[in-house]
Design a protein around this nucleic acid. Sequence first.
DNA 1: AGACCGATTCAAAGCGCTTTGGATGTTTGT
DNA 2: ACAAACATCCAAAGCGCTTTGAATCGGTCT
Lengths: 345, 345
Amino acid sequence: MNLKQLSEKLGLSPTTVSRALNGYPEVSEATRMRILAAAKEHNYSPSAQAKSLATGRAMTIGHVIPTSGATEMVNPIFGDFIAGAGETYAAAGYDMMLSTVHRDNELYAYRDLAARRAVDGMIVHAPRLNDPRVDLLRELELPFVFHGRAPIDDKSYSWLDINNTRAFERATKLLCDLGHRNIALINGDETMDFALRRRRGFMTAMEAAGCKVRAEWLAKGEMTESFGFHTATRMLGLPTPPTAFLVSSIIMAIGVRRAIAAKGLRMGRDVSVVTHDDEISYLKNGDTEPVFTATRSSVRDAGRRAAELLLAQISNPSADTVQELWECDLTLGASTGPATVLART
Amino acid sequence: MNLKQLSEKLGLSPTTVSRALNGYPEVSEATRMRILAAAKEHNYSPSAQAKSLATGRAMTIGHVIPTSGATEMVNPIFGDFIAGAGETYAAAGYDMMLSTVHRDNELYAYRDLAARRAVDGMIVHAPRLNDPRVDLLRELELPFVFHGRAPIDDKSYSWLDINNTRAFERATKLLCDLGHRNIALINGDETMDFALRRRRGFMTAMEAAGCKVRAEWLAKGEMTESFGFHTATRMLGLPTPPTAFLVSSIIMAIGVRRAIAAKGLRMGRDVSVVTHDDEISYLKNGDTEPVFTATRSSVRDAGRRAAELLLAQISNPSADTVQELWECDLTLGASTGPATVLART
DNA sequence: AGACCGATTCAAAGCGCTTTGGATGTTTGT
DNA sequence: ACAAACATCCAAAGCGCTTTGAATCGGTCT
């Protein structure tokens, strides 16, 4: 059933039917009702392609999901981010198009989506050092919003980010206040912007507290459970092991916990752990009391909001760019304790 | 830059340019080269919508991702499944459209996608008991492939599934062979088909081994770390606690491990755990030796393959439906040990 | 009453592509 | 040398919608 057939069935012109369905005023209420009823009865929806072609708007948002490393790992936060963004899109009548591509050659995916005019805008994931995508997307003249910032965090493009620096600065300070001086940082890949900022926050706080940072207490890599485990295991085996870990993701923190347990130590007593928690739906950080002391920010909320910013930009391209920096909660859980206890180990 | 402009620039008709770009034979090699060069130079790609409208094929596959429960949880396996499917789509020139909807009202999403002719086919996720989607998709006359089966596993539709029953039967038998008789099952939501089958496999093996199954050793629910933890904690506190756990997901198994540790017990010595492992990229089950003894099957491979089956069905709608049942590996890890040791607890 | 007006409705063009059914030369066969 | 066959190209229709500009009609104003 298409517009023409429906209009013939109603004895009306396609024009009138189209107008009625799209809520234009120049059609009488009586016929509008008749049209809406007929459309429902025959289960008619306008063809997405025809509509897009006629209006020039794809009504689709693109997400290029980068996979990384040899294992083509997908960041666990994407599921929830996408779920959040999807809510916004659905409410606004937009579709979501996904493209999973390895980080090393994802520029092609952006170019392609733009050249085919398949999307009206894009959300950019996982910004990196010297991210070429800022320039690329400008060149492509597509509205876009970064989830996170490229290091050039000027006002020339829109982004939504959490205050990684401050979050990790506060987390580090908390550990220092608890008496820890030997603190390790298990970070994500430091070509990623967020990881860089987290390290910067860590360093600042360590310096402020007069704590020395040893190179052997610094690690960066794939944010897997496995990486967390191996790194923590290695560090706990050092002549001078850290008494606390600051960890960039709850998945890695789970690995760290496993390493601590494997050494026969107890998390929160012998060794402290603070992690960042994106509030992933299947990895809730405890129910009554948080398992991990954590810097916390909902990635699903971020998805929802980033999508809103993008849609706003699409509907009003001349508006100013928007930057939103969200502060993280710092929630106390069972994984931290005073360093004095640790000394007894 | 559109077809018309490009063809004018070349002094050719749109017909010829279109044919050259689409690889039709009735155009000389010389002009084809010229056209391809010009297309590349001007960065021309045909408009996705116009192409779809003209050909009647959306060149897009739809995935309706169900979220579940009050928290709108997204199953952690989706990231990897999508990544696998995405590879297949990209290679075949298809796009992927995602719709995240709560399980309770997802039928609308299927209807909508079909009515708007936005997709050429769909992958159906998370089949359930009495799943209405089999009938719905037949009615919509859209090609579709189930990831998993609806309980009616007849040959009337295509699906790709793992042998859940057999996997859990084997896993249970392994535990029984190790001397365990008090085995708990921590399962997913048993309105889900896979969970039902796993329970059936568990029951069969228990019966075969002459082990009694107590209701208090059976749990089903959201496959979160938290649920695994609480359930295991509760069960370990029973007058007769289980000596082994069979768990439906590695995320829950991590929760179970936490519960075991919290009780001061050691996994693999005092309590055994076998879990199903979907080989999620960020949750690799150990590097050298697996952390968990596990029934294992790559969900990313499943995504890749399910997409292949769907594309084949789209390109040849009259072909027979295809059913693929994959056996799982049963890999031994550090989380299982003989029950005799446990008795010493 | 005649011009005017607002409320409805419609015909037709256009969005950017593909594809059918020729047209135009060029070879080939005899 | 002439018809047939082929290689190459093109004009135009059509995909299903939106939207511009115009037509129609009953009612209003002077």
